[in-house]
Amino acid sequence: MKTDNEEFLEEEFSTQEENEEESAGLFEHLNVTVDKNQEPLRIDKFLFIFRKNSSRNKISQTCRAGNVVVNGNSVKQNYRVKPGDQISVLLATPKRLNLIIPQDIPVNIVYEDEDVVVVDKEAGMVVHPGHGNYDGTLVNALAFHFEKNGQKSDLDRVGLVHRIDKDTSGLLVIAKTEYALSFLAKQFFDRTTKRLYWAFVWGNVEDEKGTIEGNIGRHLKNRMQMTVFPDGSLGKHAVTHYTVLERFRYITWVECKLETGRTHQIRAHFKYIGHTLFNDERYEGNQILKGINMPKYKQFVKNVFEVLPRHALHAHTLGFIHPTTKKEMYFESPMPADMDAAVSKWRNYVEQ
């Protein structure tokens, strides 16, 4: 049996802040060539033997969701493998968490049914427990919500299909069943979901629309940052499309669509082209990077930093096909209050 086991996206930072714009470490793509001596065997049993740390239910739901492909075609769990079969499997592999303590933390749930819950996350909330953040997270809040409503959801095993940074606000979908997780995982892996981000970046972005392309990997000196390796020698391929929404002389409001999903993709790409996210401390965007450094202007920017005390990034839209109904669902999150306040200040400034 020959295998090519490829983890999807970047490793996680072991820091107090979450690292993902997207779905880092949440999916695993397996490619298997069936041995020439293999006896006919149901594919669910074959994969259970091959992938010993996966449950029978996970493999069954992965097949049901259409994430098991043999010789180019999706198959169900009763398909019998044959010698030479080329098998491709997309497994949702959510981060295994220790016992989750339900906590009564306010969370803005914009939609919920038996399969999924869609949350509009506030900036400052970590998505799941990890090093330095063992509680107080979105997962803790959801565990309390489910328990209060008498719902059973094994959040230490199913749930997260994608993640956003602690200080990024906006929309997230969480799966409530193994099947929903598998079904949504393929959409995120294939990039068929509809998601747009809003960002404020330093400087007057030259073109109304553009594409930033360049491999993204861990910075060689500052391990807390990701950086672009334009020669492709390191990192992973990354593409960000953007459209200018409004200009404020010294900063620009842009809308971003990610073609790939790398750690800190928007933040690293815009720093690479000289337009670091506004007030992004990790990428030195919390300094005055554009404009005349005069006392009144300097004080004005400090005032904006105070009303927007985090990097200016917001997950504005989320669209996906529902696991059960197979209908498209689409959500929009309005601009959060801190970013809206910053826009008002910049508009008043440029009109003076």
Rank of each mutant, 00 (worst) to 15 (best):
V126W: 02
G132Q: 11
V81A: 08
T93P: 06
E112N: 00
V118K: 05
V116D: 10
G84W: 06
V118Y: 07
E112H: 00
L91Y: 14
S88P: 00
V126P: 05
S88D: 10
A123D: 02
K95D: 05
P94W: 11
V117E: 03
E122H: 03
K121S: 06
Y134M: 14
A123L: 01
D120I: 05
L99E: 15
L99D: 13
I105H: 04
I109N: 04
Q77M: 14
A123W: 00
L90W: 06
M125N: 00
V127M: 02
N133L: 05
V107R: 03
I109P: 05
P102Y: 04
G84A: 09
K121P: 00
A123Q: 01
I105E: 03
D85R: 13
I87T: 10
R80E: 15
V107K: 03
Y134F: 14
G130P: 08
E112S: 01
D85G: 12
H131R: 13
V117F: 04
I101Q: 14
P102S: 10
I109V: 15
Q86W: 05
K82N: 14
D135R: 14
P94T: 08
G84Y: 04
D120C: 07
L91M: 15
V117P: 06
V119D: 04
V118G: 04
V126Q: 02
P94K: 12
Q77K: 15
V127L: 00
L90H: 09
D85K: 12
I105L: 15
I87D: 07
K76H: 03
D104H: 06
V126N: 04
D120A: 12
V81K: 11
V117T: 13
Q103S: 08
D120S: 14
N133Y: 06
I101C: 08
L138Q: 10
I109L: 13
M125G: 01
I101Y: 07
K82L: 10
V89R: 09
G136A: 11
G124K: 00
I101W: 03
L138V: 06
